[in-house]
Every structure is written in C-alpha cells, then in structure tokens.
C-alpha cells in the first residue's frame, strides 16, 4: 500500500476520503500533546507574569495563601525519591531480566516472567494502599512518623522494577543470535558470556530502560501521595516526610484559586520539562521508538 504512495494517476475518491479521515484522526492524536502544553502554559502565565520565575526557587517557603511559592522542596523531594527508587530498582530489574533469560530453569523463568508482568499491571493506588497499611507502620516502629522518603522509595522501586526488567528483557531478546553461538563455539562460561558480551552489547537498551523507569518514577502520584507524608520541606533524613511535585498538585488542586492554582500548573509545567528531558535522553540512548 505504501509503495504507490502519491504516484497513482487516478486516485479513487474513496481513498481520498479515507486518507482525509485518517489525517484528521492523527492530527487530533498529535494535537493532544500540544493542547496539554498550551493549557499548562496558559494557566501558569498569570502567576509567572505576576511574580516571575525566580520566586519559585527563591521564596522562603511554600505558603501559597501568603504568596510564597517556593517549589524547591517539592522538586528536591521528587528527585530524591526518583533517585532512590532507581538505585534500588535498576540493579534488581536488570538482575531479574538476566535471571529470567540466562539463569532460571524454564519453569521458573515462565513463572517469574508472569510475576513481573503482573507487577507491572498493578494499579498505583493499590501499591500506595499496601505501603500505607503495611510498610508505613513498620517504618513507624523503627523511626516515626513512618510516612517518609524511605517508604516512598521502597514502594516506588517495586513499581518501576517491572519497567526496567521488561525493557531489559526485550533488549536481551533482540541481541543477535550469532553472539550466543559464537560464545558457545568458544565454550565461554555463562559468567563470561554475560559480563563480556551480553551486558556490553545491550548497554543502550539497559540505559533506555532505566531512563524510562525514571520517567515513571517522577510522574507517579497516588502511591507517593499516600505514603510520603506530604510535608513541604527538604527532607533531612530517609525517615522524614517529603512532598513531591505530583503530590503537591493532587493535594491542593481541589481548593486552589487564583495565583495558587496557577502555581500548581507551574508544577505541572516543571514536571513536563523533566519528562521531556528524560524522553529525549531515552531517544538518544535507544535511538528508536520509546513508548512506555
């Protein structure tokens, strides 16, 4: 169908009609991102005009009712949780994929793979609920108040682990068969095959998986909202409560008015900037399509 694209002397009217409709649909689909960006900017502009960008990072605190709009604690909170979750989930996720593909007996591998797929399907609110009723009381026993940076990191790590693992697994699956045949021909041990051939060859895929997982971590709302305590301060330890950019929106959107509401859209805009940077990074790392 593609081959005669644009070269037909007498295109049928039906086809023109069809193509027209398809163009409309695709236009609509790609318009959504534009619309989202437009509305984020449109709704953030009032406060940006009013007080300027620098206030969002230099104000003394986040007290929107007193016109103090410091977003730094939330930004730091988001980044800290993301970093912590990645530090836990990236090695575990990659190890999971390696285990599944190269170490596990077939039966266990199938079981394990479906467990990971199951994990990836669990709604974030269920993760949050589990964290709230099991994990938070546990942490509370060690070091109150329990709702903390640590709880967020642990739950989020489990949430993004499937992302890392599934993409890493797909990367391993796409390695050329010759690599394995060559290794078998040279009678390389499994360890050597892994460290000298497989891991170096799938470096970019693994990097993509981690970046996409980071994107998922920074955008996560519900679980974080339920287990992190939501206090707008820069955390001084793993056990202190923390508020993220996403939780900030979810908490205050319900009653925010005027500049306050506008400031929440600025948080959204900030999130989008981070996501955009991550997706571009993933594109560069993976040099391909990177749907999550």
């Amino acid at each position: 169908m593609i081959l005669s694209n644009g070269n037909i002397l007498s295109p049928s009217t039906h086809d023109r009609f069809l193509t027209g409709i398809l163009w409309c649909f695709s236009l609509l689909a790609s318009l959504i991102l534009g619309l989202i960006l437009f509305f984020l900017v449109y709704n953030s502009l009032p406060v940006l005009w009013d007080i300027g960008i620098s206030k969002f990072f230099l104000d003394s605190s986040w007290h929107p009712s007193e016109a103090l709009f410091n977003l730094t604690p939330m930004l730091v909170g988001s980044l800290l949780i993301m970093l912590g979750a990645i530090l836990l989930a990236a090695p575990l996720g990659i190890v999971s994929a390696i285990f599944c593909r190269f170490y596990a007996p077939k039966v266990i591998a199938v079981f394990y793979q479906s467990l990971i797929e199951l994990l990836s399907g669990i709604p974030s609110v269920v993760y949050g609920f589990w964290g709230l009723v099991t994990l938070v009381p546990l942490i509370q026993k060690v070091n109150p108040p329990g709702t903390s940076l640590l709880a967020g990191i642990i739950v989020l790590a489990l949430m993004i682990l499937p992302t890392v693992s599934l993409i890493a697994d797909a990367t391993f699956a796409n390695l050329p068969k010759e690599y394995f045949q060559g290794a078998a021909g040279l009678s390389l041990s499994r360890f050597t095959l892994l460290t000298q051939i497989i891991l170096p060859a799938s470096k970019s895929g693994l990097l993509t998986s981690v970046i996409l997982a980071a994107g998922r971590a920074i955008g996560e709302t519900m679980a974080i909202l339920m287990i992190c305590g939501n206090i707008a301060q820069i955390p001084d330890s793993l056990f202190s409560p923390v508020r993220t950019l996403t939780a900030n929106i979810a908490l205050e959107m319900a009653y925010a008015m005027g500049n306050h509401r506008s400031a929440l859209f600025v948080s959204g805009l900030l999130l989008m900037v981070i996501i955009f940077a991550l997706v571009s990074l993933a594109h560069r790392a993976g040099k391909g399509s990177v749907y999550a």
């Binding site: 509305f39 955008g219 709302t221 996501i275």
Partner: peptide, 20 residues
C-alpha cells in the same frame, strides 16, 4: 509526540482535563 505523551505523568493529564 506520542512518545512524549506516553511519558506525561497522569496528574498532568488531570490538570489538563480539569482546565480543558
């Protein structure tokens, strides 16, 4: 644009839906 859309946090969709 779809790649970026897939990465947009759900809360941002919420903001957009609320505004639009």
């Amino acid at each position: 644009s779809l790649d970026v859309l897939a990465g947009v946090p759900s809360i941002v969709f919420g903001l957009f839906g609320n505004a639009f």
